[in-house]
Amino acid sequence: MSFINYASREINCKIVYYGPGLCGKTANLQYIYDKTSPQAKGQLISLATETDRTLFFDFLPLDLGTVRGFRTRFHLYTVPGQVFYEASRKLILKGVDGVVFVADSQRERMDANLELLENLKNNLREHGFDIMTIPYVLQFNKRDLPNIVSYDEMYRLLNIKGEPTFEAVAPQGMGVFETLKAVAKLVLQELSKK
C-alpha cells in the first residue's frame, strides 16, 4: 500500500525481497546499502539471529529524489526465508507494493525455490494480492557458484508471467541494482494507473 501525501508531496512504496533461506535476500539489501550515498539512505535495520539469519525482517529506507515533484521513498524489506518463520514471513507482506523473488541458483536448492514461490503466491492471496497483477521481478542469485542450474532451465521452472528476470551475484553487486530498478519501475507504473 503506497502512501501518497499531497500535503508534503511525498510518496512511500514498500518492496519486499522474498525467497528461500540463504538465497541472498539480505545480501541484496546489504549491497544496496553499501553503494548508496549517505543522504539517500536511512539505517539498515536487521532483526537477525546470532548467526545472521533473518529472524523477522531487514529494513532499508531509500530516498531516491523526486519524480514529478514528489519525493519518492522506497522501503525495502526482506523476509526470513527459513521455513519455520512462516508466521513472520507472512506479516511482512502486509501492504506490499512490489515483490522481488530471489531464487538460489544451486541445483540442490531448486525444490526450496519452488516451495517458497508457492508460499509467496498463497501469502499474497491471503493479503488480497494476486501474483499475476502485482509488480513482480525475479532474480537468479549465486551465479558465481559451480553447481548451478542454467538460466533457461530456471526460467522455465520459476518464471510465472514473463516478469523481468535477472542473474545476480549479490555480495559482488552483479544484478542487484538492475533488479531494484526493475521493480521500482513496475511499482511507479502501477501507481500511474490509479
Binding site: I4, I11, L64, V67, R68, F70, A184, L188, K194
Partner: peptide, 21 residues
C-alpha cells in the same frame, strides 16, 4: 474517484533519473 495520480505519465527516463546519483 481519486485525483489523477502524479505519476500518470511517468517515463523510463524519470525512473533512470531516480537512480542516476
Amino acid at each position: 474517484q481519486a485525483p489523477v495520480s502524479p505519476f500518470a505519465e511517468i517515463t523510463d527516463e524519470d525512473i533512470d533519473n531516480l537512480f542516476s546519483e
